[in-house]
Design a protein around this nucleic acid. Structure first.
Length: 490
RNA sequence: CGGGGUGUAGCGUAGCCCGGUCAUCGCGUCUGCUUUGGGAGCAGAAGGUCGCAAGUUCGAAUCUUGCCACCCCGACCA
């Protein structure tokens, strides 16, 4: 008798942790801060990868692969980049083990010390720009539009499965351009792709905007981001796209000869999304019954649960349901007919709800006598009897309906939890309630730090859309050009 | 790195204050029968270095010390 999840209202973080495990998405590993992504969870990630990869390819990018290890010296070449990552790098110092003379298994062989220590990549800008130096001579070599799917390691103090793990999977795009404008344009283009992916595939509404200097990527001139709001009222950065200016080109001496013959530094961008998106997906939609998946990312769209006594009835149901199965498969719907005799229907219902399968079809003899099936949707937990006849098309439409309805619901939630605030008192009381707060800020890092210190809220972004009216800073009262978006963040 | 907590079967737990038939219970697993429309019932069975190490003691899951791991809160964090 498996019990339900802890409820979101009781203990949100426990709900999240339990859900991740119970829905078979991932496990903690024996290595602190690392995770084992289980087949079901990985299937969702693969769907994300596929959709994103297609969009990258459509915009002219190609995949490549750079090494996991980076020479320590590379990391020190771009000053602010080092500062940003130095504190969380794993370092390889030795290359050999040996048997312990005292018989305690293997130990590091002290004689196998590396001449130059290697860093496990926290991101690959340095490895890639040191290579671009070799690849770029002329304007004809540009642009380079490259992406890689990889794992990276950041030795975080405090980790949370999918949201912040010591090792995670991601894609990192790295492009090189002849002109500033082209790189700026690329930065925006990729942010748009991320936003489109979040909205249309994940059904997660996001705010596009620009990071403040405090929150900017170490080594970037400008960082654009998409920010999503989770059900507990905390914000989650779901993707970033950086305009690197000529910072890395200068650090790694990447120059090209222009059409006019002059020698110029290359302009760069980098952009990434990670397995953190899994966390966003979970926290944006799921409920106390378990995971809720948008159809476009669900590994199984439809599960059919037969309700029967004996093989004969099972066969009968199988035969009657086969045309529906075939029609759905032909339409590209992924479908599971669960004829496992070991588990009872009630158990299966709960199990597929936990795993977020968007549509469940239950078929028993009682329905079949009337030519009916029961169709249940995961997002609303509603169910209805429908005629078997024509149900394939009905289900195909229903999946679309679920996809857009989930997005609407999430958008609604975000709108209800986004508040305009004009006084410090309102700000502090509102920040306790959670959600996005749209407020004026005087534009200085000092004020942003002060607000963070007092309330734990940070500026998530300076949104591209929305109110650009002038006003007065919420803390200092100094003039402000426009409202920015505050929240407590993951 | 600071403050708090936890570590007992695959999972979740009782017992610890007060040392001695205390290794408890539930889920899961196995066997059999009955079941199958919202996490099945009954009967039986298997399963344990009580986180690790040292110490105190006739005797330690229980007391002492040290260590390790994990969780929560802080610090830290694109």
């Amino acid at each position: 008798m498996a019990k339900g999840l802890p409820s979101r209202s009781e203990n949100y973080s426990e709900w999240y942790n339990e859900l991740v495990k119970r829905a078979d998405l991932a496990d903690n590993s024996d290595v602190r801060g690392c995770m084992i992504i289980k087949p079901y969870g990985f299937a969702i990630w693969e769907k994300m990868q596929r959709a994103l990869d297609d969009m990258f390819k459509e915009t002219g990018h190609n995949n490549a692969y750079f090494p996991l290890f980076i020479p320590k010296s590379y990391l020190s070449k771009e000053a602010s980049h080092v500062e940003g990552f130095a504190k969380e790098c794993a370092v390889i110092t030795h290359y050999r083990l040996k048997n312990d003379e005292n018989g305690n298994g293997v130990v590091v062989d002290p004689e196998a010390k590396l001449e130059e220590e290697l860093i496990v990549r926290p991101t690959s800008e340095t490895a890639i720009w040191s290579t671009y130096k070799k690849w770029v001579q002329s304007y004809r070599d540009l642009p380079i539009l490259l992406n890689q799917w990889a794992n990276v390691v950041r030795w975080e103090m405090r980790t949370r499965i999918f949201l912040r793990t010591a090792e995670f999977l991601w894609q990192e795009g790295h492009t090189a351009h002849a002109t500033r404008d082209e790189a700026v344009e690329e930065t925006a283009r990729m942010l748009d792709i991320y936003a489109k992916f979040a909205e249309e595939w994940m059904a997660v509404p996001v705010v596009k905007g620009r990071k403040t200097a405090n929150e900017r990527f170490a080594g970037a001139e400008d960082t654009l981001c998409i920010e999503a709001l989770m059900q507990d009222g905390k914000a989650l950065q779901a993707g970033t796209s950086h305009f690197l200016g000529q910072n890395f080109a200068k650090a790694f001496d990447v120059k090209f000869q222009s059409k006019e013959g002059s020698l110029e530094y290359v302009w760069g961008t980098s952009w990434g999304v990670s397995t953190r998106l899994m966390g966003a997906l979970i926290m944006a939609h799921s409920d106390d019954q378990g995971l809720v998946l948008p159809p476009k990312l669900a590994p199984i769209h439809v599960v059919i649960v037969p309700i029967y006594k004996g093989d004969e009835q099972l066969e009968q149901i199988r035969q009657i349901i086969t045309p529906l199965l075939n029609d759905l498969k032909a339409a590209g719907i992924s479908i599971k007919f669960d004829d496992d005799d070991q588990a009872r229907p009630g158990w299966k219902f709960a199990e597929y709800e936990m795993k977020g399968v968007p549509v469940r079809v239950a078929v028993g003899m009682r329905d079949l006598e009337q030519g009916l099936i029961e169709i249940a949707r995961r997002d609303t937990l509603s169910k209805e009897q429908r005629p078997l006849e024509g149900s394939a098309q009905y289900i195909i439409d229903l999946l679309d309906e679920i996809q857009s309805s989930m997005h609407k619901k999430a958008l609604n939630f975000r709108e209800e939890n986004t508040t305009e605030v004009n006084s410090w008192d309102d700000f502090t009381s509102q920040i306790e309630k959670g959600g996005f707060i749209s407020a004026h800020w005087d534009g200085t890092p000092e004020t942003e730090d002060k607000i963070k210190e007092l309330t734990k809220a940070t500026i998530r972004c300076i949104p591209f859309d929305g109110d650009a009216c002038k006003g007065k800073c919420i803390l200092t009262g100094k003039p402000s050009e426009r409202r920015v978006l505050f929240a407590k963040a993951y």
